[in-house]
Design a binder for these strands. Structure first.
Length: 510
RNA sequence: GCUCCCGUCGUCCAAUGGCUUAAGACAUCCGGCUUUCUACCGGAAAACGAAGGUUUGAUUCCUUCCGGGAGUACCA
């Protein structure tokens, strides 16, 4: 068997979309599983759509996911260059080869002429395409005399090269996820292979590069399936059918409502990120949110993406990248498009977040703190994270829901005040503050609890009467992590002062 | 329009020509735990798109229809 070499071949026309990330991931997993090579090739043959920064974005996105290429524009490799615009002269010999063999021809039609042709065919109820039946009525090297063609080529008149699709042939390909796919050549059109700017189109460039780079498997999105027969034809005409890569067309990532494939618009419409990280459109300055900035961990994102269109076969769901490499297989990739479910992504994030060491989480919190002008020791931040991490989905929730670890509450949850703030409780709290005042040892979760229990016993009250009020006084909220531990983090002085502040404020108002 | 691909709970998906009362996870709902909760534990509800075949038997194979998606550019 030949060595596994796969490529991820995006075009730098914008930020890498999360669906692209999944395609890259599947390529990576497949390569690593077979001790193969994962290649990043930049398909920038359309210079009109080039977007500055897009290529860097793509590479950073792969790095963030932990799926960096083995060969590529920065890594280099035996088959460099890996940017198609830098391979322009390579394609020439193959277009010539196709021309010489009669598998391709020059076409001189202007876009107006093409439109006219399409309109005419449409009106006649025929397929409006440049194909075996319509090509003979167009301006090309099949209809023009040799002299005319030579003259046109000599002049500055722009031309393209088109493939001459066969009239009556069944084209078959064996897709690793879809099985046998058959298409009749009469439904294919004479696609442009070489554009008038001298650069190849995707179809030619992709076939030539895959051949030259010894790609063994082409794993790409399903949007390429319709043009796969054309690629098969190209391999055949170039005489490379024996070394043609195996194809695997992945199901598309769809909008949650099933209407259309996931796109930039989906993010705006459904309110979730569709990019690995924030992207600022260089023209409009508009920022599209990313998974990273939204608080998703790369491990969670990768895990989530892996399960969208692929299934391990057993009931395990949590996989590290290394584990995925072991269990992944194209045979378990599903065929139907997968609707994007952000709730599942959140669940994965939660799973990974609670396994994160406090010190890693603390970095997020410390950043939020310094942005809000609050100083904190890393130790305290870690303590807070330790208490909060089992009840959050995103790191930024620690700051947004547990500010009270750093600032006394400014207001108190009204509903909870009505339900739980009773005179009896408030008296007990004041007494509790007195007790704390009198003790001079460091407040710990255990000592706090002991002292409170002692006090309540003397007053013949239950914990349930006082705890909610105490939480309210300390945090302003009705819920949160273990109260005694919360007090330990706050410290004795702070607990006392917050109790007194709450009593003053809440009793005054009601 | 034409070509191709697809169709199991709301979502991701599993299994299978009879072992199926169709499994798991997310989400939902209910209960429990708890000082509280977004955590945890327990439970409920929830699907083979339709019709015809083939077969002793079909969710599974075939056909048609319906539905969805993709492609149909000198974009990738």
């Amino acid at each position: 068997m030949r060595p596994v070499r796969v490529r991820f071949a995006p075009s730098p026309t914008g930020p890498l979309h999360i669906g692209g990330v999944r395609t890259a991931l599947y390529n990576y997993l497949f390569a690593k599983q077979h001790q193969g090579t994962f290649i990043l090739r930049i398909e920038d043959t359309d210079q009109t759509r080039f977007v500055p920064g897009a290529e860097e974005y793509i590479r950073e996105a792969l790095d963030w996911c932990g799926i960096s290429p083995d060969e590529g524009v920065v890594e280099g490799g035996k088959y460099a260059p890996y940017r198609q615009s830098e391979r322009k002269n390579i394609y020439q010999q193959y277009t010539q080869q196709l021309l010489d063999a009669g598998y391709a021809y020059y076409a001189f039609d202007t876009s107006d002429e093409l439109n006219t042709m399409r309109e005419r065919l449409q009106a006649e109820g025929k397929n409006p395409q440049y194909d075996a039946t319509s090509r003979m009525s167009m301006k090309n090297s099949l209809t023009l005399s040799e002299e005319e063609v030579a003259a046109k080529l000599k002049s500055d008149e722009p031309y393209v090269l088109r493939i001459k699709t066969p009239e009556d042939e069944e084209i078959q390909l064996n897709d690793l996820v879809r099985g046998e796919v058959k298409v009749h050549s009469s439904t294919l059109d004479d696609k442009v292979l070489l554009k008038s700017d001298g650069l190849p189109t995707y179809h030619l460039a992709n076939v030539v590069d895959d051949y030259l780079m010894k790609i063994s498997h082409v794993i790409r999105g399903e949007e390429w399936l319709p043009s796969a027969p054309l690629h098969v034809l190209l391999y055949r005409y170039l005489g490379w059918e024996d070394s043609m890569p195996q194809f695997a067309h992945l199901p598309l990532l769809m909008n949650p409502d099933g209407k259309g494939k996931l796109s930039k618009r989906s993010g705006d419409r459904f309110g979730f990120p569709v990019y690995p990280f924030d992207w600022k459109n260089p023209q409009s300055e508009e920022v599209s949110p990313g998974f990273r900035e939204s608080g998703y961990l790369p491990e969670a994102t990768v895990n989530f993406l892996a399960l969208l269109g692929w299934h391990p076969g057993d009931e395990e769901e949590l996989f590290s990248l290394e584990e995925l490499v072991k269990v992944f297989g194209l045979d378990r990739v599903s065929k139907a498009g997968a609707k994007f479910d952000i709730e599942k992504a959140k669940w994965f994030n939660q799973q990974y977040l609670k396994e994160l060491p406090n010190s890693s989480l603390a970095k997020y919190l410390l950043k939020d703190l310094s942005e809000n002008g609050i100083e904190s020791s890393p130790e305290k931040a870690e303590q807070v994270c330790g208490l909060m991490k089992e009840r959050i989905t995103f790191p930024q929730e620690i700051w947004s829901t547990a500010q009270y670890f750093y600032q006394p509450p400014e207001h108190y949850d009204e509903k909870m005040v009505r339900k739980k703030w009773k005179a009896e409780a408030s008296d007990a709290l004041l007494a509790y503050a007195e007790v704390l005042e009198g003790s001079d040892e460091k407040l710990s979760a255990e000592s706090a609890k002991q002292q409170l229990q002692q006090l309540l016993e003397d007053r013949q009250m239950g914990l349930g009467k006082v705890m909610p009020a105490l939480r309210l006084a300390l945090t302003g909220q009705g819920g949160g992590p273990d109260l005694m531990s919360t007090m330990e983090v706050l410290g004795r002085q702070e607990v006392m002062s917050r109790i007194r502040q709450a009593v003053e404020q809440l009793n005054g108002n009601t």
